[in-house]
């Protein structure tokens, strides 16, 4: 039964992922549509970061925020993303010790 659930999950996850491969062929690309599609990664990043980051430690939203600020500072100096990740993990670890 769990395997059936997993297969169902796989189908409803895969289909929305690949449908655009077929429909984008048929859409003629206006410049405004292009700009919209190019903005999607940045809008998605915004929505993925906030307010979700406050739930890292659900009962202490400020811990997630502080980790995020540390990641921001590190990223501001154009260091590789990995350093932002490590810095944020260390911050949350220290704050929850």
């Amino acid at each position: 039964m769990i395997i059936a659930t997993i297969i169902g999950m796989a189908i409803v996850t895969m289909v929305p992922r690949f449908i655009p491969a077929f429909i984008m062929e048929k859409i003629s690309l206006r410049p405004w549509l292009n700009r919209w599609l190019n903005a999607i990664p940045f809008a998605a990043l915004g929505a993925l970061i906030f307010p979700g980051i406050m739930t890292v430690i659900p009962e202490r939203p400020l811990v997630g925020i502080t980790g995020g600020v540390v990641a921001m500072l590190i990223a501001f100096f154009n260091l590789n993303v990995i350093f932002a990740v490590i810095g944020a993990i260390a911050t949350v670890f220290l704050l929850t010790m």
């Binding site: 997630g64 990223a75 944020a88």
Partner: peptide, 28 residues
């Protein structure tokens, strides 16, 4: 503490783009 990892990655991806183009920060 590892729960922050992917959020930090998203931030690490976003910040350099916003530095180059503040408009992207407005969108995010």
């Amino acid at each position: 503490s590892m729960g922050i990892a992917l959020y930090a990655m998203f931030i690490g991806l976003l910040v350099p783009s916003v530095k180059k183009q503040w408009r992207l920060g407005l969108i995010a």
